[in-house]
Amino acid sequence: MTKVFKTTLALLLVASIILAMTGCSEGKPTLKVYNWGDYIDESVLVEFEEEYGIRVIYDTYATNEDMYIKIKAGGSDYDVAFPSDYMIERMIKEDLLHEIDFNNIPNFKYISEEFKNLDYDSSNNYSVPYMWGTVGIIYNTTMVDDTVDSWDILWNEKYANQILMLDSQRDSIGITLKKLGYSLNTRDVNELEAVKDELIKQKPLVLAYVGDDVKDKMISEEAAMAVVWSGDAVYMKWQNPNLEYAIPKEGSNLWFDAMVIPKTSKNKENAELFINFMTSTDIAFKNTDYIGYSTPHVEARKLLDDELINDKTAYPSSEDLANCEVFKDLSDFLTEYDRVWTEVKAR
């Protein structure tokens, strides 16, 4: 049994005790939070409940698309969600988000200027940055003796059945576009067809298409390399020192996750209260310290261990990011991406 599994079990236990305890306090206002799996120090939820007397109902999702479809389909009533850049852009376009009243988010001042007014929310009315990072390759130095500096290594037959890919269409298609030298926001069907062929060619080499379980697999050395988000890479390196992370030279995806208030929210003010709470220095620090992702919070970053502050995985240099691109919303063209991914997976 891996450590991760044990901690998860412990967390589940704690969470269920919390649920059981708060379960009896009826009539309390509730707040429904919809976040990525493994993306928060869950103890801060308890702190929030104690401080404001608001019961938190916490759900998780595995991909942006997953979250989007649940909110878009209706029937849910989430107050806070944590989508990425391109998904925020899409949700703004489709009028799925409330404008945030920044008077209620005084802690917004702690967010570094370079993370405000980014393209996906250019006048910053809808989102408060939560974490950021890159997509790259994590590899086990005892199992890989080639230099890992290119996406090509994921197509190297030497590592057949030792490669883990992300079960997330924008990411997997995105890195293949980069490998072929295209933009990861391409709207060219021919380029996508080329990507499809590449991914189908790669399929026999792939051990599995995974989500969050990639962490357990890499830590317990079930595979030699995997495509991962940088923050997860930081965590995996903590757990297994044989692991190393690289951003391929062809460039990759630079991403930002931010907190938003979906239109499904019934109590926007409580949602703002929660976002402000999450942006306070000690809570932002706790989350960053716990999950290992890169924080846009100036004060929280100062509190981190030197080791983490200087870790190029979490805080890459501008050269590393030279060829990186941020995902853009593709609107209608997305159906082409859907089709390509469906066909790759069905093969």
């Binding site: 698309e65 792939v206 599995a208 298409y209 859907d338 997976k345 093969r347």
Partner: peptide, 21 residues
């Protein structure tokens, strides 16, 4: 199967949950 062996159930799930078609 590690997401490698798409069965009809996976195809349906994918269309509803991830693709939205």
């Amino acid at each position: 199967g590690g997401g490698q062996f798409t069965l009809i159930g996976n195809l349906i799930e994918q269309q509803f949950l991830f693709v939205g078609d």
